[in-house]
Simulated scan of single mutants.
Amino acid sequence: MENCKEAFTPMSTSYYMDADLAGTTVDQTKFRGLIGSLLYLAASRTDIIFAVCLCARCQSNPKESYFKAIKRILKYLKGTTTVGLWYPSHSPIHLVGYSDSDFAGCMLDRKSTSGT
């Protein structure tokens, strides 16, 4: 992945991750290792949390299409190495949260992805 082409977004806007029942199965250990590393990185890179958590749901039976989604996240990270959260020790932290209503946004079970 060192010489890969960079991606501008962590997920494709035209591809929906659905239940890939007929796809080629990939190595579970490698898949789970990548997911674990990305979840650890997501603590300081909040821009990848949604994409990583979407891929993490497929750990029990990883397919090639899910592995391609993880590669897309890695390509995005390669292009955005200077992006991240910085927590200075001398200034107070003011947390602001935003929400977007997304009713039936999940393509798998048609549940809300925003928790409403």
Rank of each mutant, 00 (worst) to 15 (best):
Ser60Phe: 05
Arg72Ser: 04
Leu54Met: 13
Leu41Trp: 02
Ser60Asn: 01
Ile49Ala: 10
Lys30Ser: 13
Val26Gly: 06
Lys30Arg: 14
Gly97Gln: 00
Val96Leu: 12
Asn61Glu: 08
Leu21Ala: 08
Ile73Ser: 03
Leu38Glu: 03
Ala104Phe: 07
Ala69Gln: 01
Arg32His: 05
Leu77Ala: 08
Ser44Asp: 08
Asp109Phe: 01
Ser91Arg: 15
Ala104Ser: 09
Asp20Met: 03
Ser37Gln: 03
Ser65Arg: 00
Gln59Glu: 04
Trp86Met: 11
Ala104His: 09
Asn3His: 10
Tyr40Glu: 03
Thr82Gln: 14
Ser60Tyr: 03
Thr81Ala: 13
Arg57His: 10
Ile93Asp: 01
Ile35Val: 06
Ile48Asp: 08
Lys30Thr: 15
Arg32Trp: 07
Gln59Thr: 00
Gly105Met: 07
Met107Lys: 14
Lys5Val: 10
Cys106Arg: 10
Gly33Thr: 03
Ala104Asp: 11
Ile49Tyr: 02
Leu38Gln: 06
Asp27Ala: 06
Gln59Pro: 09
Leu34Gln: 11
Phe8Val: 07
Leu39Gln: 01
Tyr76Trp: 09
Ile49Phe: 08
Leu74Phe: 12
Thr113Val: 04
Asp47Leu: 04
Leu77Gly: 05
Met107Val: 15
Asp27Leu: 06
Leu95Met: 11
Pro88Ser: 06
Ala69Leu: 08
Pro88Cys: 12
Ser112Ile: 01
Asp109Tyr: 01
Thr81Lys: 12
Tyr40Pro: 02
Arg45Trp: 08
Pro62Phe: 02
Asp100Glu: 05
Lys63Pro: 05
Leu85Val: 14
Leu85Ser: 08
Met11Ile: 15
Ser114Glu: 02
Glu2Lys: 08
Ala7Asp: 06
Gly105Val: 06
Cys55Tyr: 02
His94Gln: 03
Glu64Gly: 00
Cys4Gly: 12
Lys78Leu: 12
Gly23Tyr: 09
Gln28Asn: 12
Lys63His: 04
Leu34Glu: 10
Ile48Arg: 08
Cys106Val: 02
Cys53Gln: 06
Lys30Cys: 11
Gly23Ala: 13
Lys63Ala: 07
Lys68Ser: 10
Thr13Gly: 05
Leu41Arg: 00
Phe8Pro: 07
Leu21Ile: 14
Trp86Phe: 15
Gly79His: 05
His90Asn: 15
Lys111Ala: 03
Ser12Gln: 00
Val96Ala: 02
Pro10Gly: 03
Asp18Gln: 11
Ser37Gly: 11
Ser112Pro: 03
Gly33His: 04
Leu21Gln: 11
Tyr15Val: 15
Thr46Ile: 15
Asp102Cys: 14
Tyr16Lys: 13
Gly105Glu: 07
Lys111Thr: 00
Ser89Asn: 14
Ser101Ile: 14
Arg57Asp: 04
Gly105His: 09
Pro62Ile: 00
Trp86Ile: 15
Tyr87Asn: 04
Gly97Ile: 14
Met17Ile: 15
Ala22Met: 11
Gly23Gln: 05
Val83Pro: 09
Ala22Leu: 10
Asp100Tyr: 04
Ser99Ile: 12
Gln59Tyr: 06
Arg57Thr: 01
Gly105Cys: 09
Lys68Gln: 06
His94Glu: 12
Phe67Cys: 06
Asp47Gly: 13
Thr81Asn: 11
Val83Cys: 15
Lys111Tyr: 01
Met107Ser: 10
Pro92Ile: 05
Leu39Ile: 00
Arg72His: 08
Ser44Ala: 07
Phe8Arg: 12
His90Val: 15
Thr25Tyr: 10
Ala56Arg: 02
Ala43Ser: 09
Leu95Lys: 13
